[in-house]
């Protein structure tokens, strides 16, 4: 039985798709059979970040509507045999995701995978509620700003009440906080909330802190999950995060502003 992980946020553009791609790749590289599903129907972009946009034939909605079976729609990653992508449709509207249909697809995936990662659209609209409904674990992606933290808090409330686990009275969804686009320099200048501020407001386990990094954009432009960029801060932070999710006790890195040397200050390194 797979564990179903939803990557969600209240506010848009905080790094959910980036995170879904890297976590899925990280789990697969550690030998776990992993599927990652794009729930952002109408705004396809997980396939771009995963670099498989040119291999899409069928999509999630086709499978829900039984116009294709899962094996036809799942795209195997070219770099990692354990990793499969179920892309979103660009053309259908979000209502195509029915609770019954999503449940059927997840059930089928759960038979043969260890982890299913659900890349949710932002907010509390239909697509997002579908992505979280069947989840076992939720990774709430938050940027260190007041509005993002406030929205995450609201998401956590919804997670606690609007899921299959809540409806059945099962053990609640396990909730993890991921702080993304963290810039220690801006925190030091008081322009952003610090890790401690956010932890204090959300009262949640911190799964990881991903620094703001140019490498994220370059990686997604190249269709490579940034976790594969082992030279970058963000890539290493995602690798740590996957380890922590799997139960390893790893210290948080990249929380302090880099002391810049004279040269890098002169040349803006």
């Amino acid at each position: 039985m797979a564990r179903i992980i939803v990557v969600t946020s209240g506010k848009g553009g905080v790094g959910k798709t980036t995170t879904s791609a890297s976590i899925a790749m990280g789990l697969a590289r550690r030998g776990h059979r992993t599927a990652v599903i794009d729930f952002d129907v109408g705004l396809r972009n997980l396939d771009l970040v995963m670099g498989c946009e040119r291999r899409v034939v069928y999509d999630f909605v086709n499978v829900i509507n039984q116009e294709a079976n899962l094996n036809q729609a799942l795209i195997r990653d070219k770099r990692e045999d354990n990793l499969f992508i179920l892309p979103a449709s660009q053309t259908r509207d979000k209502e195509a995701l029915t609770k019954e249909g999503v449940g059927r697809v997840l059930d089928e995936l759960a038979q043969s995978f260890d982890y299913v990662v659900c890349d949710s659209p932002a907010g509390i609209e239909h697509g997002a509620t579908m992505a979280m409904y069947y989840a076992d674990d939720a990774i709430v992606v938050t940027n260190p700003e007041v509005s993002s933290v406030r929205d995450s808090d609201r998401m956590l409330g919804i997670l606690a009440s609007k899921s299959r686990r809540a409806e059945r009275g099962d053990e609640p969804i396990r909730e993890y906080l991921l702080l993304s686009r963290y810039s220690p320099e801006r925190v030091a200048r008081g322009e952003m909330l610090s890790v401690d501020d956010v932890k204090d407001i959300l009262a949640l386990d911190l799964l990881g802190v991903i620094p703001e990094s140019q490498s994220v954009l370059s990686a997604s432009n190249a269709g490579v999950p940034v976790i594969l960029d082992e030279a970058s801060d963000a890539g290493r932070a995602y690798a740590d995060l996957v380890g922590r999710y799997l139960g390893e006790d790893l210290p948080h890195r990249f929380l302090e502003a880099q002391k810049k040397g004279l040269l890098s200050r002169l040349f803006g390194g």
């Binding site: 609201r154 956590l156 409330g157 009440s161």
Partner: peptide, 8 residues
């Protein structure tokens, strides 16, 4: 014993 979230 659990946090009461925004909107709850």
């Amino acid at each position: 014993t659990h946090p009461i979230r925004s909107g709850q």
